[in-house]
């Protein structure tokens, strides 16, 4: 198992390098010029110096190398410093946003909690809803519940979040006036009332995100349960005289969870991508919204960093899913 894990870790290094190169090259082609806002009265040689100060004067491969060093060495050092109060990274050049002239990672760290609360809660809610639905609709296949569940998951699949989001805003905050339509990220939870407000403003984004995730996971759960319900070991368990509850909830469920757990792990990075749209709908100023504004403002370091963070998340959770599968299912270990 350790062997497999190490091999898998090593494979992800070239993957990450390829992705970073793709992102870097794509943005190199960008027509945007960070000097476009500088007044025309500034002489060209001064402009050239400013360009070099932003690190734009050097050839492409050197800049790529420097960016990699900044991202993989200096930024983690900064994180370490922040956590433990040391000063290893002092004086080292960090990735600077062209919009705000402050380190990109600081802004990301400010925005990340907003995204994480909404996305994380949505994911947990979705899993809690999806698994029982999947289990029950597989157990009573083609029953009314199963058919209704299939239809609802199909709808959850097909209704894009920018429509379901807008629809719940129209229904719940315009017509009924129950929830605020804009997510207030400056809101602090101090007492019961503010906690209730926080819940109220989270309900709609969480609902929209959770609808999508629930559809995917419960569909998968159902298929996985159906695969297992006809297996021989289930018949054995029934023949031994175990109660139906034990057979389904212990024997079948545990075996069906193996692929579902990997799907849950694999889905996490995709949810961050989906959150870009949901954040835009509910005006949550998380990292998705940060990405959109950075793209519009031609803030290359910010876009590079954020896109790369998304890529790292994907690779990381692929890795976690693979290793989890290996741990949970001894049959597929490669060693």
């Amino acid at each position: 198992m350790l062997n497999f894990t190490i091999r898998r870790l090593l494979i992800s290094i070239p993957t990450l390098l390829f992705i970073s190169l793709t992102i870097f090259l794509l943005l190199e082609l960008a027509p945007g010029d960070p000097m476009a806002q500088v007044p025309l009265t500034v002489p060209p040689e001064v402009k050239q110096q400013m360009r070099e100060a932003l690190g734009l004067g050097e050839p492409m491969h050197i800049r790529f190398f420097k960016w990699i060093v900044q991202f993989f060495w200096i930024e983690p050092l900064n994180l370490f410093d922040n956590l433990f109060g040391t000063s290893f990274a002092e004086g080292k050049l960090r990735v600077i946003s062209w919009q705000t002239r402050s380190p990109v990672m600081d802004i990301v760290a400010q925005r990340l909690p907003q995204t994480l609360t909404v996305v994380g809660v949505a994911y947990i809610v979705a899993i809690i809803i999806a698994i029982p639905i999947g289990v029950y609709s597989a157990y009573r296949q083609y029953s009314f519940f199963d058919n209704a569940g299939t239809f609802i998951t199909m709808v959850g699949f097909s209704v894009p979040p920018f429509f379901s989001g807008v629809l719940v805003i129209v229904i719940f905050s315009v017509w009924l006036g129950w929830f605020p339509s804009i997510y207030d990220t400056t809101h602090r939870v101090t007492d019961w009332d503010s906690f209730v407000y926080q819940l109220k403003q989270m309900i709609m984004p969480v609902m929209v995100l959770a609808l999508q995730i629930t559809s995917q996971i419960s569909r998968f759960m159902r298929a996985s349960m159906l695969d297992n319900l006809n297996q021989d070991y289930v018949r054995t368990a029934r023949a031994k005289g175990l109660t139906e509850n034990v057979v389904v909830l212990v024997h079948v469920l545990r075996n069906s969870m193996i692929p579902v757990v990997t799907v849950i792990a694999l889905g996490i990075p995709g949810i961050f991508g989906g959150a870009i749209i949901t954040e835009q709908v509910f005006k949550v100023n998380g990292i998705g919204q940060l990405l959109i504004t950075a793209i519009q403002a031609n803030d290359l370091p910010m876009v590079q960093t954020l896109t790369f963070i998304f890529a790292v998340l994907i690779v990381l959770f692929n890795l976690i899913a693979d290793i989890l599968y290996g741990i949970l299912d001894p049959r597929i270990r490669y060693d």
Partner: peptide, 10 residues
């Protein structure tokens, strides 16, 4: 493994 939506936007 590419983050598709951000890359599409860019």
């Amino acid at each position: 493994a590419l983050p598709l939506l951000p890359l599409l936007l860019v």
